[in-house]
């Protein structure tokens, strides 16, 4: 089972990237689980025609522990197994602790043993702001962290912070840095700047997604671009990234 966590500045396109990768992996015949680790709980909505699924913390709030694994995991239209961690009431509680509770609950209820996903993708909120948001990169969780960034200054700054956190946790046998995913915003010297960032962390640009009108149009249609516009350049770029990840880990697509 390959587990990958995706981090990056808020609004940079993590959920779009993760959802497209999940859909492509599923289309390749792999069992894939996408876990949204953001209180907004909108990571997986494109797999359900824009509808939001019930979150793990909603279930805990309502039923304490009296619910089943099936109540937490929803199969999307494109066969992606979807989970949303959810969060506390905005402005209250502790979102980081919520992520921990949700991931622990998934494990306790046997999500990985029952569904046997070949690939698990954690879509994590913004920066590694506290212990809760480092949970997906801890030992036993993700093997690799990919950081989604554009060439914009604040995005690069956030990406650098996340990469530093990954580096700091290396001695704890946490996830390795898999690379940076450049989600282009068409700013000057974009690829060059992200390449410098990647080299600073002895890493590389694992994939490049060009600025695309189709991605925005697909989101308006509540779909992944690879589902709505499979022949678009963006769909091909996501597919190339997915293939590269599989190749790196020696996982063969079934179709």
């Amino acid at each position: 089972m390959l587990k990958i966590a995706f981090y990056g500045k808020g609004g940079i396109g993590k959920s779009t990237t993760v959802s497209n990768l999940a859909a492509i992996f599923a289309k390749m015949g792999l069992t894939v689980m996408q876990i949204g680790c953001d209180p907004k709980a909108d990571s997986t909505s494109v797999h359900h025609g824009g509808k939001r699924i019930v979150t793990v913390l909603d279930l805990i709030r309502k039923y304490n522990d009296d619910f089943s694994l099936e109540d937490m995991v929803f199969r999307g239209e494109d066969n992606v197994l979807c989970v949303e961690a959810g969060g506390p009431v905005p402005g209250m509680g502790c979102a980081g602790r919520g992520i921990i509770a949700a991931l622990e609950k998934l494990e306790q209820k046997g999500a990985y043993e029952v569904y046997k996903p070949q690939i698990v993708l954690y879509d994590v909120l913004g920066d590694v702001v506290c212990g809760g948001f480092s949970m997906p990169m801890r030992k036993g969780y993700a093997h690799e962290v990919y950081i989604v960034t554009s060439g914009e200054k604040m995005s690069i700054y956030a990406a650098g912070n996340i990469a530093m956190a990954v580096d700091l946790f290396r001695k704890r046998s946490y996830a390795e840095l898999g690379g940076f995913i450049l989600n282009c915003r068409d700013v000057p010297d974009e690829e060059k700047n992200v390449k410098v960032l990647a080299e600073d962390f002895h890493s590389s640009i694992a994939g490049k997604i060009g600025r695309s009108r189709e991605i925005q149009e697909a989101e308006r249609l509540n779909k992944c671009v690879c589902g709505a516009f499979p022949d678009s350049p963006a769909a091909k770029e996501y597919t190339l990234l997915a293939e590269n990840i599989l190749k790196k880990w020696g996982i063969k697509a079934k179709c």
Binding site: C130, G132, R138, K139, R172
Partner: peptide
């Protein structure tokens, strides 16, 4: 526990 302290990782570091 509430702040998500990673006791396993801390134990690994102390062991090392």
């Amino acid at each position: 526990v509430m702040t998500g302290t990673d006791l396993d990782a801390i134990a690994d570091e102390i062991r090392a």
